[in-house]
């Protein structure tokens, strides 16, 4: 009902860190002046490896509605293999953005009226010194670049905060590398 809320849906697999990724973004946008931040993971029985999603709503004002996102402005996909299992564009607004981790070229995809940005997060994260399959910090680099909601610096700060004891520099580097190498396509 409210028009001032930006709705972002995060698609990942259980254990992949989609919640942490959304949480880092939530912290960064809050610092950037968005007072209304609500992040809601899938409610219920999450199992490692199974597709899960997390929703993030942000607004300049306090958000009161905790119900799940139906018509997201953006979707973030942590793993391109999810495209075969989940309709990630479900409810996505016309002109809405898709941020996708994929090793493939951008012209491999056709999302119609939606705007696609891609980055090979998996490779960038490895290059940054993270273990194979750790993509949650990298993907938010792509998110930041594609959406312009979070500056490169704020993102770094939020990552260092969240990963203070778990390879903070490597995680920050993964985000930075991805930020710089994200390919933004047209609608």
């Amino acid at each position: 009902m409210r028009q001032d809320i930006i709705e972002i849906r995060w698609h990942g697999r259980g254990g992949q860190g989609a919640i942490t990724a959304a949480k880092v973004v939530a912290n960064a946008v809050f610092k950037a002046g968005y007072k209304g931040v609500v992040m809601a993971p899938t409610f219920g029985t999450e199992r490692r490896g199974a597709p899960v999603f997390t929703s993030l709503k942000i607004s300049r004002e306090k958000i009161y509605d905790l119900s799940p996102i139906e018509t997201p402005d953006m979707v973030v996909v942590l793993d391109h293999t999810l495209l075969e299992e989940v309709d990630v564009t479900h409810g996505l607004k016309d002109g809405g953005q898709i941020i996708l981790n994929t090793p493939k070229a951008i012209d491999t995809y056709d999302f119609g009226a939606h705007k696609l940005s891609i980055s090979d997060v998996t490779s960038h994260a490895l290059e940054a010194g993270l273990a194979p399959g750790i993509v949650n910090t990298g993907i938010i680099g792509a998110f930041a670049k594609a959406t312009g909601l979070v500056s490169r610096d704020l993102l770094r700060e939020a990552i260092l905060n969240e990963f203070s004891v778990m390879k903070p520099e490597e995680n920050a580097r993964a985000a930075a590398l991805t930020y710089d190498r994200t390919v933004i396509g047209g609608a």
Binding site: M39, P41, F43, I63
Partner: peptide, 12 residues
């Protein structure tokens, strides 16, 4: 407090 709706959502 509401399970999931509040218990599992993140907000400031």
């Amino acid at each position: 407090y509401d399970g999931y709706l509040l218990s599992h959502t993140y907000m400031p």
